[in-house]
Design a protein around this nucleic acid. Sequence first.
DNA 1: TTGAAAGCGCTAACAA
DNA 2: TTGTTAGCGCTTTCAA
Lengths: 336, 336
Amino acid sequence: MNQQHPQKKTTIYDLAELAGTSASAVSAVLNGNWKKRRISSQLAEKITRIAEEQGYAVNMQASLLRREKSRIIGMIVPKYDNRYFGSIVETFEIMARERGLFPIITCTLRDPDLEVEAARTMLSYQVEWLISTGATDPDRITDICLAAGTRSLNLDLPGTKATSIISDNFAGARELTKRTLTNLKRKTGGMSPLLFIGGRGSDHNTAERIRGFRMAHQDLGVPIEEHHILACGYAPEKAAQALNMMATAEGSVPRGMFVNSTISLEGVMRWIQSSAQFVGAPPIIGCFDWDPFVALLGHDIEMAQQDVSGMLKAAFDVVEKDGGDRRLIEIPPIFA
Amino acid sequence: MNQQHPQKKTTIYDLAELAGTSASAVSAVLNGNWKKRRISSQLAEKITRIAEEQGYAVNMQASLLRREKSRIIGMIVPKYDNRYFGSIVETFEIMARERGLFPIITCTLRDPDLEVEAARTMLSYQVEWLISTGATDPDRITDICLAAGTRSLNLDLPGTKATSIISDNFAGARELTKRTLTNLKRKTGGMSPLLFIGGRGSDHNTAERIRGFRMAHQDLGVPIEEHHILACGYAPEKAAQALNMMATAEGSVPRGMFVNSTISLEGVMRWIQSSAQFVGAPPIIGCFDWDPFVALLGHDIEMAQQDVSGMLKAAFDVVEKDGGDRRLIEIPPIFA
DNA sequence: TTGAAAGCGCTAACAA
DNA sequence: TTGTTAGCGCTTTCAA
């Protein structure tokens, strides 16, 4: 990475010289506040033209150093290569830009140490807000931000020390379970308890979804099989492995399933294809998450789509209102 | 976004005062080059401890302003919410960090103006390299970078003014077409020309893939239907609409198809489901792109997976070797 | 082994 | 209406 053309970049001093004026005039013009500085429109025009000609680009480092507010907003996110998080970051960027904020995003691979490191890096860049998405330890990050006087906010997974915006996991899971049980009845004539698979028992979302799962069973008068609740982690392999163990231990796996994310669904589908259990009697699935190809290609798969733009709208509301309180905002997922 | 705690952040001067030493000593210690400055390890330790206690975080803006090299590397990318680009950005971040570079990424929604604006913003942040991924006008971006003395590189779609790293579209499409024609023969007993759908006729990748598509037909002695080559754009709706028009005009659509991306595949699948044409005789598809759920749930869909990590490895090779020449590097896609 | 001081490019208060 | 100037927090050279 040796600078091949160590070419000095044009500065406002260069422009000032070319325009026969001062750096401060150039700065004012280029920042768009030349009317309040009452600079003549001719000078303004001249400066703008010269800047254009020179291909001038402001040095953000210098500008930010001098300014008191960075207008940078940071987000950390566990993964990119997934439709849910992908659309979160995409929407985040768009909304940030609409509000004149500069978004910076880092992906932390669900690694707690990386999360902390990423948070510190964001602070070094003087972010005004940090949004922790799906963080393994949100409160840790809030503490780090608090110590630096930076505000933060949790998305997707809640923490106790900052406002959290999450899906309404309980109500969503209850509805999804109800729908899946109903689908099962339609296909098989009866309702038997579903298998719950995927997610971490220790995380809030999974716990709430399990609660909704139980409640829906109760609503419909279906008993629960306690040993059929498998919070085995999110990774596809974990889900496949859990199904495999159950199949070996019990000889079969329930036909109706509640799958806790598309990530887990990947493992579930893989296992289903490799096992011979479901030939002629395909599983009836409810998935708490959405993917277009599953929606298109998956038969008998009901999906709860988390309302990404609703969640981010809520997040930016908090940012703009400068919400200093700690609230838990729950956004209902969307059913097709 | 009013700073609620306008809390002055701790600087190296604060630390220096607390440690009873100078700012320059603090700086040296915190940068890890205190051995070459021959600072006593006691002092170093003391400074480190105090910095820790104070939750000190360097101000990157100030640091970067003073340094000559930013070690920031930028990437612009058309979309996030797609497995291909998702894994590109994820891999990019990981590889950048491994090399001690700070990655900043922006998504430009295939909007040429946004691409230019994003490029300028990246230059403002003093990126040392800019990687334009799937840009609509890569040469424009290269020009902007050149003018600022910043190096750039094209990924996924090539340009003529900077090194470009892309999939081997011709060979990949030829192989994919061959496989799809063979699948068609296996299912139907014969080979009839495939439909080509998706992508922009004006982009290099689509042109090369059409060339490979033609060549494979020729290899296998299958004629080409010229009016069955539909470079109708990438968006799902475009593909669905193109199929619709063809079905209305010709009464049917070929059973064998070459689909130019998973994005287009979304539209193709949607149309197939809504049309009655393929009941009992499902289409035989080859898709130039990969998605895990399509691989799992799609029947008779062959996929060419672009070698994301191979492409990025090549990109970072160029960055590290500081390759100033313009080359076209083609990476073969992967078949299951 | 350590400190003083200059200056990176910019913004904003103050002078003119 | 415009220019001068003092830093923003840091790195780095030079002097001690």
